[in-house]
């Protein structure tokens, strides 16, 4: 009988800031335990020893912005049992998706002295637009406790316990004063998924939606409230169009605010 092999973990990067994969290295107390429980087969940022697939679990950071990356993610998918996307870039195109609202051909042509050297697509798209994804972990950046939960869940072949309720629920649990009601500070907490620990309201600022939409958001209603608090329409459109601009509820809210902003 051969001993059971350690589950093989791959960490892969697409267009991103590296912050979500750094979250794994930021698990200072748990990193060596995680490394003991798995075989880290691919993790360019951390190791020069690469091992070929197949992978039991792949953590994928970043969005797809080049034709080559669109091909690469299909190759990774083909070798992976459980594919988990980590962070706003991988789950919603991230801040790079702002290019989807602009003319990238023009950026490239007008802006680079030698545009022919630059290889890029006109869009930044989430991984699930290209391949089936088994689980999406939200956040810009992701939360390290949620990351550890997801890794242990998939290694133990169970579903991760990652809540999809709003930041408001976390704020109440944490005992934060509501910045929107008490101070009139514009806040995306009511429509944003929890997971960060409601840190912005804890620091007396409004949530800016970096974990993307919660499971039952009423963004249209919040747009009205933000305006009531004195936020100009273009500012409302921008706040929804930042780190999770392609997530449908945020996209619709931004489109609605932008449209009315230019209406006479």
């Amino acid at each position: 009988m051969t001993p059971p092999h350690k589950p093989r973990l791959g960490v892969f990067k697409f267009a991103s800031c590296d912050g979500c994969q750094l979250t794994l290295l930021d698990c200072e107390d748990e990193l060596l335990a995680v490394a003991g429980a798995v075989e880290i087969a691919e993790f360019h940022e951390a190791t020069s020893a690469g091992v070929d697939g197949p992978y039991d679990v792949a953590l994928v950071e970043g969005s797809v912005t080049t034709a080559d990356d669109a091909r690469r993610i299909r190759e990774i998918r083909a070798q992976t049992r459980t594919l988990v996307t980590i962070g706003a870039c991988a789950t919603a195109g991230g801040i790079q998706a702002l290019r989807n609202f602009a003319d990238v051909e023009e950026f490239r042509r007008v802006v680079y002295a030698r545009p022919e050297f630059i290889q890029t697509l006109g869009t930044s798209t989430p991984i699930r637009d290209h391949v089936p994804v088994d689980f999406e972990l939200r956040g810009c950046p992701i939360d390290k406790h949620q990351l550890l939960e997801v890794i242990s869940a998939f290694l133990g072949r169970r579903s991760p316990n990652v809540p999809t309720e709003s930041v408001c629920i976390e704020c109440k649990r944490r005992g934060n004063v509501c910045v929107l009601v008490a101070h009139g500070t514009p806040c995306l907490g009511p429509v944003t998924q929890t997971g960060c620990g409601a840190i912005c309201p804890a620091f007396h600022r409004g949530c800016y939606g970096c974990f993307g939409p919660q499971d039952t958001p009423n963004a249209a209603s919040l747009v009205g409230k933000l305006e009531e608090l004195g936020m100009a329409r273009p500012a409302v459109a921008r706040v929804f169009r930042t780190f999770n601009a392609l997530a449908p509820p945020f996209r619709e809210a931004a489109d609605a605010a932008a449209k009315e902003a230019v209406a006479p």
């Binding site: 930021d26 950046p141 840190i199 804890a202």
Partner: peptide, 8 residues
């Protein structure tokens, strides 16, 4: 507030 992309 957090180590990556501080919010404060």
């Amino acid at each position: 507030g957090r180590e990556i992309h501080p919010i404060n």
